[in-house]
Simulated assay, not measured.
Amino acid sequence: MTTYAALLRGINVGGNKKLPMADLRELMTGLGHDGVRTYLQSGQAVFTSGHGDEESLAAELTRAVERRFGFSVDVIVRAHAYLKAVAEACPFPAAELEAKQLHVTYFSAPVTAERFAEIDRAAHLPEEFRLGDRVLYLYAPEGLGRSKLAETLSRPRATKGVIATSRNWNTVVKLVEMTAPQA
């Protein structure tokens, strides 16, 4: 059995795509997953499964949400080892920053630096971003809501052909904890 986190993109935001977490837990348990737990209302679920891989589990959950709730939602599923590696590889001093200043965008597939080559990094300073393994780390000193760089990074050219969903640093750390093997 492997422990995973499912990251659902764009649910319960601004009154759109309402999906109560109790209903999500019930749905995922009905798919045969064990130990289903959710974190916050913004689309994180942790579960264990002995079947499938990250991509097939994400596709299964996407289909199940659409059948049950009537709307499509993008899902990324990642195992504990990956989530832990992402947190450990953070190129910014996470321990010294407020959680609102640091975000991770998870991608469904690898992305290359060429995808972001047109972005004038100097024009956005002190905001910065760095790429990792299927992730983008964003340092936004004034928070995501005020970030001009985040707005630029979310444009279709940057995300074309991949699912992208962002989480603040508190959520990144919490998902590592929640997916850690239980003693």
Rank of each mutant, 00 (worst) to 15 (best):
S42Q: 07
G43M: 10
G43W: 03
V46N: 01
V46K: 04
F47Y: 14
T48D: 13
S49Y: 10
H51N: 14
S56A: 10
S56N: 14
E60L: 10
E60F: 05
R63E: 15
R63L: 14
V65E: 05
S72Q: 13
S72T: 14
D74M: 05
I76W: 01
I76E: 01
I76S: 05
A79H: 03
A79W: 02
A81K: 05
L83N: 06
V86C: 01
A89I: 06
A89G: 01
F92N: 03
E96V: 01
E96Q: 15
L97I: 10
L97A: 07
E98H: 13
K100N: 12
Q101R: 13
L102Y: 04
T105Y: 10
Y106M: 06
S108R: 08
A109N: 07
A109F: 01
P110D: 12
V111K: 04
E114A: 15
R115C: 00
F116T: 04
F116L: 12
E118I: 10
E118K: 15
D120W: 01
H124L: 13
L125T: 02
P126L: 12
E128W: 04
R130A: 13
L136A: 08
Y137G: 00
P141H: 11
E142V: 03
R146D: 13
L149S: 11
L149C: 09
L153I: 03
R155S: 13
R155K: 15
P156V: 10
G161P: 01
I163R: 04
I163Q: 09
A164S: 14
S166K: 01
S166V: 08
T171F: 10
V173C: 14
V173Y: 11
L175T: 02
M178N: 01
M178A: 11
A180K: 10
P181I: 03
